[in-house]
């Protein structure tokens, strides 16, 4: 039986977690993959921690449950690092993608994390420079493309061209490219 590739996103409401998840889904589907991308809705209030999940496969996906053992955890808000539930179930050979100005080596020491690959990028800075708003999401997808072999940067850029309205497109393409280029990856 096929095992699924699974991602868990952690962020706060209004940071674009759901949009990023759907953009990734579009990119994967355009690459011929089967996908489930869904949020974990709680009380809807600005700034509340929210999660979203992506499940990827080469065959139609049967399983309909949340993601408990992710291959990738993406934390797009750095105030969530201290919440231990964000790392729960992350596979030993998995990947952690963090929005931080620190290097992956520093984050490995800070989190005392003896497992998985770590990727860091300063999506907060990228968003501040490009959008002047806390839209960390698209830069983080660039980081994901850099840290894993799940998807090519070009697939994401193509999907973004399809998904974003013209006035938001250029800024988001730049955020994705910068996220990809500025991400630093530390293997286990």
């Amino acid at each position: 039986m096929e095992s699924y590739f699974q991602i868990r996103w952690h962020g706060r409401a209004q940071q674009g977690v759901v949009t990023a998840n759907q953009l990734l889904a579009w990119a994967l589907v355009r690459g011929g993959r089967h996908v489930q991308a869904f949020p974990d809705f709680g009380p809807e209030r600005g700034g509340a921690p929210i999660r979203a999940f992506t499940r990827v496969a080469t065959k139609p996906i049967e399983l309909h449950e949340k993601v408990y053992e992710p291959d990738v955890v993406i934390i797009i808000d750095n105030t969530l690092f201290k919440d231990p539930s964000t790392l729960k179930g992350l596979k030993k050979d998995g990947t952690l993608v963090l929005n931080t100005s620190y290097a992956p080596e520093e984050m490995r020491a800070h989190l005392k994390l003896g497992i998985c690959k770590i990727c860091t990028l300063d999506a907060t800075k990228i968003a501040a420079e490009i959008f002047k708003k806390p839209y960390f999401n698209t830069a983080m997808i660039g980081g994901l493309a850099r840290a894993t072999e799940l998807i090519e940067l070009n697939n994401i850029l193509d999907a973004a061209k399809f998904m974003f309205e013209e006035k938001a497109l250029e800024a988001n393409l730049e955020a994705i490219r910068r996220g990809y280029n500025e991400a630093k990856v530390l293997e286990l």
Partner: peptide, 10 residues
């Protein structure tokens, strides 16, 4: 609800 209504799939 949500499991299909708000879940993006191919």
């Amino acid at each position: 609800g949500f499991l299909i209504s708000h879940t993006m799939e191919d």
